[in-house]
């Protein structure tokens, strides 16, 4: 029944509000990102109201980092495929249901575009 509800909603509303950022949006490689884009990604990652990555991760020059998750360094080595890194941020619980990491994309904490920028920034580390 809920499926029908959702379908009806989408049918009715899609014309008014196209959904922003979905799981399968194309990811950006670090090489395609401008310095301004990297700075934006960094801002989103550090912003307490956005990524707030420092709450749990050590990142480069970030102040007062937490240590709940692993340090975010050498990301290209750890995630040779940027889509895997993107998927991890989008919904870490898909691979590990018991993760403490919030599903940033799935639960709409960040938009798809914001996650792309964060991925690009992390890939530069």
């Amino acid at each position: 029944m809920r499926l029908i509800t959702s379908a009806a909603f989408v049918a009715g509303i899609v014309a008014f509000a196209p959904p922003s950022g979905s799981a399968d949006a194309p990811s950006l490689l670090a090489g395609e990102v401008t310095p301004a884009g990297l700075a934006q990604g960094r801002d989103i990652a550090f912003d307490r109201g956005k990524g707030n990555c420092l709450a749990c991760h050590v990142i480069a020059d970030g102040q007062l980092p937490g240590n709940i998750g692993p340090p975010l360094m050498a990301m290209k080595l750890r995630f040779p495929d940027p889509d895997r890194l993107r998927a991890q941020i989008w919904d870490a619980s898909a691979r590990n249901p018991e993760t403490i990491m919030p599903p940033f994309g799935k639960h709409r904490i960040l938009t798809g575009e914001e996650i792309d920028l964060v991925v690009a920034y992390l890939y530069s580390l």
Binding site: M1, I4, T5, A8, F9, A11, G12, I13
Partner: peptide, 8 residues
């Protein structure tokens, strides 16, 4: 659902 359908 009925409401939503009607609305849509």
């Amino acid at each position: 659902s009925a409401l939503v359908l009607a609305a849509c």
